[in-house]
């Protein structure tokens, strides 16, 4: 009895602590970024360019950089993950599928900085040679490597969704003579719509929050990118770079704007996942 009580208090404490940490972070950022709001320049910051010489400290270029790298990385990672999880959970023979899944699980454990390394020494030179443009540090390089970082998790989420299909549906399709691909297309995919969408949104959140890949591979130029071969700076990379440089300037204030934007984006994504999850419960 006593032990149960102890565990209950412990869990409650942990839950309260982590929940309040989340809230505290938001309050902290609002507090430190307060001067920006008071001047009414928070929204101007989001839409103006970055040009310290002229006194412009807008984070619009970083916003554009983040969005283009995230979008592009999803364009690579989503089809790849969908295909890989179809292979693992439907098409490949059991032994090979198990091997693939183990490999993917291992990939999720590799630190991001290793991917960054590989990107700097293999991908960037390759892109530079291939397109004969600039340093090779570009949106393209960053998004390709970022897709490698987010794919393993996405594959595992999709695989779980595919494998959660009720056995009776699977047996019905099999007994009616569906080939594995037909079963995938007509039974598993329609059933997994919500899971796929949830996995996609979680990956957007991850891609957006990732700092190292963009920092190491995107070149960090503070300009609105014009093509995918241009260099760009993400919000996260911006925060990392400014924090490393100085502590008390207008530049420094902008990282709170950047932080807030990231916070709001990722939180709304998580909420969206919750809502979809709730809808899924009702539909099944």
């Amino acid at each position: 009895m006593k032990r149960e009580c102890f565990a209950e208090t412990g869990f409650l404490g942990a839950a309260v602590l982590s929940a309040s940490l989340t809230a505290l972070i938001l309050i902290f950022m609002l507090f430190l970024g307060f001067p920006l709001f008071r001047g009414g320049c928070f929204f101007t910051l989001l839409t103006t360019p970055w040009n310290p010489d002229k006194g412009l400290f807008g984070i619009y270029p970083m916003l554009a950089g983040t969005l283009s790298i995230v979008f592009l990385s999803l364009c690579w990672a989503f089809p790849l993950s969908l295909g890989a999880s179809a292979l693992i959970s439907v098409i490949a023979p059991t032994g090979f599928a198990k091997f693939c899944k183990k490999t993917v699980q291992m990939l999720t454990g590799i630190p991001t900085v290793i991917y960054g390394f590989v990107g700097v020494f293999l991908l960037v030179p390759f892109i530079r040679e291939m397109f004969a443009s600039g340093s090779g540090m570009s949106i393209l390089s960053a998004s390709l490597m970022l897709s490698m970082v987010i794919s393993p998790t996405m594959i595992l989420i999709f695989t779980d969704t595919f494998e959660s299909i009720p056995a009776s549906y699977s047996a019905a399709a099999d007994a009616l003579g569906a080939s594995p691909v037909q079963k995938l297309l007509y039974v598993i995919l329609p059933y997994s719509r919500q899971g796929i969408f949830a996995g996609l949104i979680l990956s957007v959140g991850r891609a957006m929050g990732d700092t190292l890949i963009a920092l190491m591979l995107a070149g960090n130029a503070v300009a609105v990118p014009g093509s995918i071969l241009d260099s760009a700076r993400t919000l996260t990379a911006h925060i990392a770079l400014v924090i490393a440089a100085d502590f008390d300037s207008i530049e420094f204030k902008t990282i709170f704007a950047a932080g807030l934007v990231l916070y709001v984006f990722t939180t709304s994504l998580i909420l969206l996942v919750r809502i979809i999850g709730g809808m899924g419960m009702k539909n099944r």
Binding site: S168, Y169, A171, A172, A173, D174, A175, L176, G177, A178, S179, V187, P190, Y191
Partner: peptide, 21 residues
Amino acid sequence: SLPELRRSAGMVFQTPNPLPM
């Protein structure tokens, strides 16, 4: 061919298993 075999030998299960459609 497995699909062909299964089309020639239809099966009805112990518990009804309509597909979600």
